[in-house]
């Protein structure tokens, strides 16, 4: 079973004791098949119990362990040591304030998620006793991809616009709104439009597409953003050029 020495350079910051963030270097023996998260756990257990980071599932579904690895937003549990040569630099997710070490403050994201009304606003209320709403596999497929977001926020750390305009609602939240808008059971699009078609909504997206590139679940938030832009444009034309066609 292979083991090899790995060097990691990890951003450290404790607001109680540090005036500013600094890098700390660790050299540890790691097994070949390990991911970066395994290396962090190994450091915490055997070298430095003060190192702080979030993690839980180790299977890329809980979304806790997003961090910058060699400058790219990644899930530490799905970043294999074997894919890196030389020193591996680990930093907290870009554009989020640092709470401590690799732990970021995510209040902004949590607020934005809630703002887009990410829940079903039924087109037609039906009591539970009447059974399930019918939805064909084709109807499901229309939005299924956008349900897969694990809220890891890698897309925010990759988005240059979010870095420039912190008020921008951002890829994951807009993709989630789009997910409900596309759901055949939902009738709440008008309510969500107020948030996502506003200035800090889709129009802040410059379509760099970095969000979709870094998404570990292949949600394609960039695709959702473009669809929202097109739909919002159609809305505008309907309203202004074809008032007789208004819903």
């Amino acid at each position: 079973m292979g083991e090899r020495p790995v060097e990691l350079e990890i951003l450290r910051y404790n607001p109680e004791t540090d005036r500013e963030p600094r890098f700390q270097r660790y050299s540890v023996g790691c097994r070949e098949e390990w991911v970066v998260l395994d290396a962090l756990n190994h450091i915490k257990e055997t070298v430095d119990p003060t190192l702080s980071y979030r993690w839980s599932c180790h299977m890329a579904v809980c979304g806790s362990c997003g961090m910058m690895i060699n400058g790219e937003p990644k899930l530490a549990c799905k970043s294999f040591l074997r894919d890196y040569v030389g020193v591996i630099r680990v930093e907290p997710l870009a554009y989020f304030p640092i709470e401590r070490d690799l732990v970021t403050v995510i209040d902004d994201f949590m607020d934005k998620l809630a703002r887009v009304k990410p829940y079903l606003i039924p087109k037609r209320e039906q009591p539970v006793s009447d059974g399930e709403y019918r939805q064909t596999p084709a109807e499901l497929k229309k939005f299924k991809q956008y349900t897969l977001c694990i809220n890891c926020m890698l897309c925010y750390a990759a988005c240059p616009q979010y870095g420039l305009i912190p008020k921008y609602i951002g890829p994951a939240a807009i993709a989630l709104a789009h997910r409900y808008n596309q759901d055949s059971r939902d009738g709440g699009r008008d309510q969500r439009q107020e948030e996502i078609a506003a200035t800090e909504g889709v129009w802040d997206c410059s379509f760099v597409g970095a969000c979709s590139e870094v998404c570990p679940e292949h949600v394609d938030p960039a695709g959702a953003l473009q669809q929202v832009k097109i739909a919002s444009t159609v809305d505008w034309y309907r309203e202004h050029l074809m008032p007789w066609k208004k819903k």
């Binding site: 839980s56 599932c57 299977m59 979304g63």
Partner: peptide, 10 residues
């Protein structure tokens, strides 16, 4: 943890 991190997700 934040609700989305709960182990039900696994």
């Amino acid at each position: 943890v934040y609700p989305m991190r709960s182990h039900t997700c696994a």
